[in-house]
Design a protein around this nucleic acid. Structure first.
Length: 272
DNA sequence: CCAACCATGAGAGTTGCTGT
DNA sequence: ACAGCAACTCTCATGGTTGG
């Protein structure tokens, strides 16, 4: 949790942070107001720093807190910022910046935004979040979205699960990592990948193949939905690896959204 | 108080990898 | 094909500790 974070305060790196935890200081409010902890100078910067962090925390200022924490540690905002966090994945037509489908999964369930069908409302939905979680979004999804939709209110705090899992020693793409973690997908979208998504889009765009469009959207939705349990698992493992003195989170189960997905696909079909 | 040494942090440049 | 970033490595600066 974010309140156990001391790394990034003046003079505090990974090892001094661990030192604080080892001394029994597990969160900001456990820092004694007086007495020598690390050294007079470091303690001074530490006490000043946590006063500011604590104030932002109490205001629920996710953005302000993120600005004060190194981006590599933004994962620690989980699960405190759960209600302010969305999971996002996009599909494109291949090698250009044409975005064919965007799936966003947030507190109110998943939604799909389809090119030429239902792209309106993406900005309004994203505006409701402070944190966006992706897989490789730093290199792909977010830059493409920025170019395709200038001015789109993409949440300012970004957690890229690709780097989370790389840090945990898990190489490979999203599908490979899902398989290793035992996360499965329903049969109709199993085996679909980004390249297949390109072909599905053309079957719809060129031949009005509605089944292909539905498969594409369903695939896109599951990409976004799976990011949630993936983040839970990655978070728990990072907590363990870094020795953060906090409890693991419960792994999200997608049972609750199965109905949402079939409802979205039903609405999509009913438009044609 | 000082000098020497050590651990840590910060910055710069390089490499490897994944998305559709 | 290629953007973009973290990890890695290297170097330099900072600050703490130790022993006198």
């Amino acid at each position: 949790m974010i309140t156990s974070t001391f790394r990034g305060l003046p003079g505090i790196g990974p090892s001094r942070e661990r030192e604080l935890w080892a001394k029994g200081i597990r969160s900001w409010n456990e820092v004694p107001r007086s007495g020598v902890l690390l050294s007079p100078r470091l303690d001074d910067g530490l006490r000043r720093g946590i006063d500011e962090l604590q104030a932002l925390f109490e205001e629920g200022d996710v953005r302000g807190l993120a600005r004060r924490i190194s981006p590599a540690e933004h994962w620690r905002l989980w699960p405190w910022a759960l209600g302010r966090t969305c999971f996002l994945d996009i599909e494109t037509d291949g090698f250009t910046d044409v975005v064919t489908s965007v799936a966003v999964h947030g507190e109110d369930g998943p939604r799909a935004f389809v090119r030429g069908v239902s792209m309106n409302g993406l900005g309004e939905m994203l505006e409701g979040y402070d944190v966006v979680v992706t897989f490789n979004g730093a290199s792909f999804d977010l830059p493409v979205l920025r170019r395709a939709f200038p001015g789109l209110p993409i949440p300012p705090v970004h957690v890229d699960l690709r780097s989370v899992f790389k840090r945990l020693g898990e190489q490979g793409g999203l599908k490979k990592i899902e398989a290793r973690l035992g996360l499965t997908r329903p049969g109709e979208v199993e085996g679909v990948d980004g390249y297949e998504a390109v072909r599905l889009w053309h079957r719809w765009d060129d031949d009005r193949d509605l089944g292909a469009l539905c498969t594409l959207v369903e695939y896109n939705l599951y990409d976004a939905i799976q990011l949630r349990p993936l983040f839970d698992i990655g978070y728990n493992r990072l907590v363990e690896q870094t020795g953060l003195p906090i409890e693991p989170v419960r792994i999200y189960e997608r049972g609750d959204v199965l109905y949402d997905v079939s409802k979205i696909l039903g609405e999509l079909r009913s438009r044609f």
